[in-house]
Design a protein around this nucleic acid. Structure first.
Lengths: 212, 212, 212, 212
DNA sequence: TATGAATGAGTATTCATTCAT
DNA sequence: GATGAATGAATACTCATTCAT
């Protein structure tokens, strides 16, 4: 983020140019992938000269971080404050977290896939993704342990493995659906994920808990 | 055909060289990633001249496919014949499929991560991966529908979404565990995945079903 | 379009660089031959960096076509409008066409030899040369038939074979003279070619027709 | 030639292999051109191993010379002894020389085109071709001067230019006809070339002189 | 700020030739 | 003689980045 913000446009015209470059970069990354995208493609789509790119970004990687920077935060935040909002209903908490995650993912699907791609070969991005994931997993571990302690979840389950598995289920479900190009009924998807998650842990789930 | 013929070693020496190149490529791809790996690295590690690489492979990409080709088959095969082997016990079938998948994944973790990396930016590899995934999902959909028809699985579940979610859970669980660098107790992991899968669908799961 | 746009210099500086590259390429092709010429030689002689070459040309072959493109036109144009200019005097028309061809050839001897070299192994260039040749031959066939119909040329001659032979005579004469390294008295050469051509067809040729 | 003959097969089997390689090389050169032909193509077509090529030829160029070696001689020889054979009839001498040249050229069209191609960029081959050509031109100069002295050819013609032009006419005619892929009526072609040649020099030519 | 020309390090690939068997 | 595996020099081309205007 520090790199991305090092060059701040001081004029309205500059701001517009920067925005155009960001939008163009997002599109080009989506179309060709980060590896195959060339700075030349980005400036062409933005309709600016080649050199202009470097007025706003230090490198091709910098524009990637500028695009991605806040999203990891946003994704990680989807699980925060969930319990407070639903007043202790565990199933509703799971449902809400899943819904928020899916919504953020779908709203930013292009950037999410981009980050997935880059994480595959860029250690820095991989670490950023992993930090997000660890937070998810940790929250889930605590949630499971809490439910096990409360006697509502199967006490024999390994909380850590279960957390990894459930987080994988939700995050990869979103990725795979986007990658396959299928359209998604978000409500139905959330209901399915929540049922699998909750019932998998041994919670009592009636259909009525899921319809909202 | 002339090109194809040249690729097939006709002598023991040739076969040895080709194997060394394959092994070297796998190592180099693991160490530096496919994108950053240079053919020069591969031939150096294999201890052969530069041109020798092209005696057996058409390109850097060709050696990748040679490494990957059998694996997709192996992965896809993990789900075949599972029910016959367990004699109709649905939970045991799920467990066996999960165990097989995990075992193949772990035994080939280096190549799996490589394919994951490449799939992230190479559409052809992505398609190959997706074909494998589709087979898994389809099998899972049929399995769920069968169980729903038999009255042992929750009939309200959307079989397609559930299948996508469960396949995501298992496949991404393996990926994430390897990526995190954590060591894995395969038995415990299989037990957890199986419980989550089976119970998530609404099956009756006693602990005794999981210990083997 | 993006590629095409990049090739066209937008500034005087760019135009100068492109011209220098064209000149350098012509020299290098002349000195080492097209096959042996390296892009490195061209950029070195032009005094620019390696990449600059590719700012203006897609490949080593592209710069060849850039050099060659106009010349074929110029060569083909030497036979156009000849009869109009000489007012129907057939011998003068032959003389003028021969003179023009020789002049264009000699003025562009370096490029002509280059194209000859490339045509020898490059089918595309060969086709381009052949198209030019066909135009010449066709014009000559018509010219001969006209003269035969007018009763001034031998009616027993096969017009097509004769046209091929005469066009070969003039075009290869120029090539051979340049290749041999001999200096050429253009006037005397034109006179000789014209006499052979005209008399060969059976026209009445007095010496006065040839001295101008 | 010394290079080509350095390796003489001592067994019948060896002789057969060498012949197959020569035939294969001729075909491959014709199909792909000398520059693009690879030794791998030649050995494949000959049905022998790669290394076998070097049992008989020192290099790719050596097999070219082995193919071409005697042909220049043969071509140059077509003009020898012509006058003696026709008993001093100048027109018949021209006709016979043209006929012989065309026949040898057509009989060896593949090798002739090959030599043409190679001469375009290989100085040694170019010199060999030029030696042949010089002999032709010199013979033609002497022939023209003889006829001028005898009062049967136009004394105002520049014998050297005329010789160059006429030799170009015949040699390039053959080349161009082969290159164009057209089939050739050798008798008609010879008649046309002879008429143009003889009449161009100012000789008296009746049709009866040409029909043989 | 904007422009676009110039830079040059980085690398995959080809193929004639050699050589051990 | 025959085989085919191994060699490695040679080179075109890409593209992120810099810089003069």
């Amino acid at each position: 983020m520090s790199d991305a913000t090092r060059r701040v446009p001081r004029t309205g015209r500059g701001e517009r140019t920067r925005d155009e470059l960001l939008a163009a970069a997002t599109e080009v990354f989506w179309d060709k992938g980060y590896v195959d995208a060339r700075v030349a493609d980005i400036v062409e789509r933005a309709g600016v000269a080649h050199g202009t790119f470097y007025t706003y970004f230090d490198s091709k990687e910098a524009v990637l971080w500028a695009i991605a920077s806040d999203l990891n935060e946003a994704i990680a935040g989807t699980a925060r404050g969930v319990r407070a909002e639903v007043g202790g209903d565990e199933v509703r908490a799971i449902e809400l977290a899943n819904r928020r995650y899916l919504e953020v993912y779908l709203a930013n699907r292009k950037v999410m896939r981009l980050m997935e791609e880059v994480a595959a070969f860029n250690p820095e991005m991989r670490k950023a993704r992993q930090r997000t994931r660890v937070r998810f997993v940790d929250q889930t571990v605590r949630s499971i342990e809490r439910m096990q302690a409360a006697g509502v979840a199967d006490p024999d389950l390994d909380a850590t493995y279960a957390a990894h598995a459930l987080v994988s289920m939700v995050s990869h479900f979103a990725y795979a659906m986007v990658a396959s190009g299928a359209t998604l009924d978000a409500d139905a998807a959330v209901a399915t994920l929540t049922t699998l998650w909750a019932r998998g842990l041994g919670l009592e789930v009636g259909r009525r808990n899921l319809d909202g």
